[in-house]
Design a protein around this nucleic acid. Structure first.
Lengths: 345, 345
DNA sequence: CTGTTAGCGCATTCAC
DNA sequence: GTGAATGCGCTAACAG
């Protein structure tokens, strides 16, 4: 439905503020040299009060703002950080991105974003592409192979990961302590009396999934059986996998994440399965929605924006070829809410 | 909690792929002139098969990729589009951003994002800042004043709005037909027999809120009373405003958006108010969560990613100082689900 | 303090 | 076809 709002784009206002004025224009306008203009703007070298005033006036009059591409070319840095996420629709990644963006903004950096649509194969190229522009690249929960990550670390100077640890490659990373989180959930469920629970698996290629597996293996015991069902990372996946979970005759469902758990909850509701009456349910991450649904979700709280901020700090710390692969571990807290209870016996 | 993953960042792999090679390096390596390298890469002018092979080999060997800042400087365009959103935590904006990003990516454009944290005062500067880098800027639901928008349109060559129409300024925009959507909801509620409903207001400065007000005024009639309560645009706002809504003794709550409605729903649940038994509830936008909660939300479906794609198209169409302020209107569809029913009498 | 010079990496003229 | 020269806008060296 196209309408035309008439009126060709006419400059409305007063200023003959041309599309883009250069430093030379300003210099001419202020009757000084370009270098002086640059000095005034950057404040690096002292300039006489008189000239400074003229320059500032000219800058204001022309609406001049330096061309960052030119500055970047000269400095060899663009003041830009890139972020690669698997899926912006996932509130988890949206929050991490927000964390990076806010931190970057505070440091006068721009944020470039790429959404790979959960396609592991696209991550490597997206990161490489962003790295051309950006001074550094943050990889959020990359699903790429170990080998690809190694290649990438080789090609991208300042690469950071969120929720992904390499094996050998010293890529700075901020990771959630998934093992601790999953252990807490298992302990909670076991203490409630559950003896057989089902775990809905996340993406196989996600490092965080492998970390969860380790915790699951450790928690699994004769009196506490954990069966697994493939699922995915979105609420749609959870919705789909709920039936299979039910079929396992477990008394509790541990979802890969809150986002997944919400899908499960919806499906259980459709099926008339009461939570936590007939079935307990847990998530992971504590996204905003989890405390808005009924029953509120028992989960493990991760400060997602904080992950983004940490990633930024790793970037900042990596300046000047810093100390190399630092790892920040964030320990999440179990939040017991209404979606878990003892099993019916 | 800082650990150190040891091992300084050592180049792992084979390639002596230096941090960054220039076109000159490639030229030297291939024993040709920089111009030839450029021609091979851009494919603009024919090059002898032999030289082409040598150049490609050198490019691969050095892992050369042209510096976009330099290209941008030369071409006067950066192949980058900027997006300003009020809040990335809001699933609505995350989706719009995703729409822009995906469309941009397909056209080999990067996406720069700025989150203004719902601070109307920050929008103007954020957009201006992004415009230095980007070839165009998309403003999502800007809350800025008319005057600021006018200024901005004057300063930013290719400015697009989502969900905001100016008055005079011919800023290309893609907008949801809020009046139609709100009318549908009102009609639905009236047909169910509601005679007194409460509307939870969004941000006063949002254009979409003013559009809703127009529809509300039109729908209001002797037999259909609409009272209003200030609220906001987030689920937290909705949660907070629910009590006031209840106090109006209306039989239905129309929330500004789904995101708000989810907060309301949570609060009503806490209060033991049954939906739709004791109170009907409607949203706007149809975000993913709305069909996952119980009861599923009656709302008006907007294709958010499509808004982003349209914004991209407006950008693409604005090339070469196109036809000026185009307006695309997207008409949303009423989706009747479980959160609405007739009032108890 | 200030102006002039040079060059960041690249694509695009020109000559050959 | 190809290479040498020019300049995008800016700042860091240099002179003065």
């Amino acid at each position: 439905m196209w309408c035309n709002a008439a009126m060709g784009r006419a400059r409305t206002g007063a200023g003959p503020r041309s599309p883009r004025s250069t430093i030379t224009d300003v210099a001419r306008e202020a009757a000084v040299s370009p270098a002086t203009v640059s000095r005034v703007l950057s404040g690096t070298k002292p300039v006489s009060a008189d000239r400074e005033r003229r320059v500032r006036a000219a800058v204001a009059r022309l609406g001049y703002r330096p061309n960052p591409a030119a500055q970047g070319l000269l400095r060899g840095a663009t003041h830009t950080i890139g972020v690669v996420v698997p899926d912006l629709s996932n509130p988890y990644f949206a929050e991490v991105l927000k964390g990076v963006t806010n931190a970057a903004e505070a440091a006068d950096f721009r944020t470039l974003v790429a959404d790979t649509g959960e396609k592991a194969g696209a991550e490597h190229d997206a990161a490489l592409e962003l790295s051309r522009w950006a001074d550094g690249v943050v990889l959020c929960s990359p699903r790429m192979s170990h080998w690809e990550l190694t290649m990438l670390a080789d090609a991208v100077a300042r690469l950071m990961c969120v929720n992904r640890l390499g094996r050998g490659e010293p890529v700075p990373a901020v990771v959630v302590d998934f093992e601790s989180g999953v252990s807490s959930i298992c302990r909670h469920l076991r203490e409630l009396g559950h003896r057989r629970v089902v775990y809905l698996r996340g993406p196989n290629r996600a490092w965080s999934e492998r970390a969860r597996q380790r915790a699951l293996r450790a928690a699994s015991a004769p009196g506490f059986e954990i069966v697994q069902v493939p699922c995915g990372s979105s609420s749609v996946d959870g919705h789909r996998a709920a039936d299979a979970a039910l079929a396992t005759r477990a008394t509790a469902v541990m979802a890969f994440s809150d986002y997944v758990a919400l899908g499960v909850l919806a499906r259980l509701d459709e099926l008339g399965v009461s939570v936590p009456g007939d079935m307990s349910l847990t998530g992971f991450d504590d996204i905003a929605m989890s405390s808005l649904v009924s029953p509120r979700l028992t989960t493990v709280a991760v400060d997602k924006q904080r992950l983004g901020r940490h990633a930024w700090q790793l970037f900042a710390a990596s300046a000047a070829d810093g100390p190399g692969g630092q790892v920040v571990t964030v320990t999440p807290d179990l939040i017991i809410r209404g979606s878990t209870a003892g099993p019916v016996t």
